[in-house]
Design a protein around this nucleic acid. Sequence first.
DNA 1: CATCACATGTAAAAGGTTACATGATTCT
DNA 2: AGAATCATGTAACCTTTTACATGTGATG
Lengths: 181, 181
Amino acid sequence: MSLRHAVLGLLADRTASGYDLMRLFQTSLANVWPATQSQLYTELNRLSDAGLVTVTAEGPRGRKEYGITGDGRAELRHWLLEVEPERNRRSDALLRVFFLDQVSPGQGRAYLERERRLAGERHRALRELADALAGEPDPLAVNGLLALEWGLRFTRMQEEWAEWAAERLAAAPAAAPPPAD
Amino acid sequence: MSLRHAVLGLLADRTASGYDLMRLFQTSLANVWPATQSQLYTELNRLSDAGLVTVTAEGPRGRKEYGITGDGRAELRHWLLEVEPERNRRSDALLRVFFLDQVSPGQGRAYLERERRLAGERHRALRELADALAGEPDPLAVNGLLALEWGLRFTRMQEEWAEWAAERLAAAPAAAPPPAD
DNA sequence: CATCACATGTAAAAGGTTACATGATTCT
DNA sequence: AGAATCATGTAACCTTTTACATGTGATG
């Protein structure tokens, strides 16, 4: 249940409406914890019921601005320091690798080559984002840069791995003859 | 809906019961696509209803051995080659990094140090697994080694990143003074 | 006056986790 | 005889995704 903590984390530094949070998610947390609009509004109401946030102001168009409460801050710190992160990572891109012997070697290499290319593109997109963010004094941006560096290293690693794996496939032909092309 | 394809992929090389698949998941796909016992049995019945697998033999204790059908193989190949992998990765470990300014610099560094250590441990565990698997001629093991190499590179990268990030935190004190320790 | 941005919600469906529930066979 | 392993299933709950649904305020 990390969406809850992502919202608390954002509200720890600012008050914000559901709509504001939606944009904050899109621009900062999207790569790490995506959330949909409908999820956010639901979660805000739940957090409010639980007393972890409160409506601090109301504005035009039914706008409700939320702020974190003392209980909310305590819950955030508890989660940050005492809850063990889940380290399960599902990857359907990597799952496909397990079954690459089901297609021809050429198709397998094409799959890996595509992965390599996309990782490279993603790397360059993150690089641009990092450059744009470099000057920002906002603590979210400062910490976001740590996460972005993770992304840069991750995409680089993936690019290199995909290249390695494609070569490996080329070197070692499939053990069992795969169905024809 | 990749669980379905994980099952098809495993059945493409062998017939297996739900129980067999459960163990195959634990020993091979666990790090890439975990599945629970209850999920597997439900999915096998769904796949069977959809005509992608069939019961090829029945054994003691109600054992049902499943095999992939032509339709199943077609679906597997379609998924492998024509369905774009989801590249959304949620990481609540990385999400915490965004909010590390909410705790003291010492606590922040401790968090990253812990991440570094755990990545190292995980790396060594994967290394052992890779060594154990190195001789296996089973195609699942051959492809599994490609995925394992990904894991080795990933954990190595994470270790290095966490070390870098901890140093970074030490160098640049928090912009806003965090709540006391 | 029209369009865009702001603003909030509900509902249904799918996927995943945890717990419950039961029983047969094999091994020591 | 008892324990471990084999073996299959259902139910409740939670999270996430997608779609539906509605309305206001500002800008050109």
